[in-house]
Design a protein around this nucleic acid. Structure first.
Lengths: 146, 146
DNA sequence: TCAATTGTAACTGTTATGGTTGCATCTCAC
DNA sequence: GTGAGATGCAACCATAACAGTTACAATTGA
């Protein structure tokens, strides 16, 4: 299975807030227009990001602000905020291997460490990228396009 | 989302075939008993592994054999054999960002390379492990348990 | 020929996703 | 205060993937 589009949508949200925060009121409707989806989808994701402590959302008046500097928010922070799986396990292990079988009895011991190392490799790469990287890269792209 | 349990089931299948190929006829029923699932689930996964060229399955008589040495089959080979997503993209990007928005127009250019590097980090770690590692580790565990 | 086995279609129940409507609640400007 | 504009959230819907199950045709070797 794929990691849901909520992840890229969340990164898109951050890029929009960063880009437009001084020139527009960035609402869920505004974001939905840039991302081309429904405002309620945006609000659900904003709610997740808020509960993870990454942003503040102003009720009533609208508007989004970051709780930390951009370089202090990594892709991994966003991924964990958005991903609903309890304790964040990347692999779904089959539930009940047969303990009467020598393989079934040992399959977890055989695989668990390897699966963790694979997941960790992905997560460590996610931690290398921050919202500051998006900010910088976008500035570069926009400068070319002027 | 999580990577489906078909992946760990497939690795379990390989471990069973390797362990029991000389002492038992390893059928889908036999495997289903060790994995504690339905024989048809097993046959579906065997079919995927067969189409990926990793195993041969004997119709009628039953029995499974490897097409390569264990050390020549990596976790990544198994993952790609089992994962149905076309061209194997780990991330599901939202479909149609708004080209009229400076962010929407550039979001793919901003993120694609970073997402690929994350996926590649995971896949490279998967390529480090082979079925030979499972074989060796299981021999070690079983030796302890005697 | 027969028993055992694979291959596969058809179906079920559950869950996640993405989308949508509707509305209560909140906030600020007036 | 009132109203306009927002968010928060519940309640749906359609679709798809997953895991499981039944049934049966096709294959193979004894």
């Amino acid at each position: 299975m794929q990691i849901s589009s909520r992840f890229t949508v969340a990164l898109h949200i951050f890029a929009c807030v960063d880009t437009f925060k001084d020139t527009h009121k960035v609402t869920s409707d505004f974001l939905a227009a840039s991302i081309n989806t429904n405002p309620v989808i945006i609000r659900k994701i904003l709610s997740q990001l808020k509960h993870a402590g990454l942003i503040n959302v102003a009720r009533g008046t609208g508007g989004i602000s970051f709780t930390r500097e951009l370089k202090e928010i990594t892709f991994y922070d966003v991924y964990r905020a958005i991903e609903p799986v309890e304790n964040g396990e990347l692999f779904h292990f089959h539930e009940s291997p047969n303990p009467a079988c020598p393989v079934g009895r040992n399959i977890h011991a055989l695989l668990d460490g390897k699966l963790v190392s694979i997941q960790t490799a992905m997560e460590n790469e996610m931690k290398k990228y921050t919202l500051q990287d998006i900010h910088a890269d976008l500035q570069g792209l926009l400068a070319q396009q002027d």
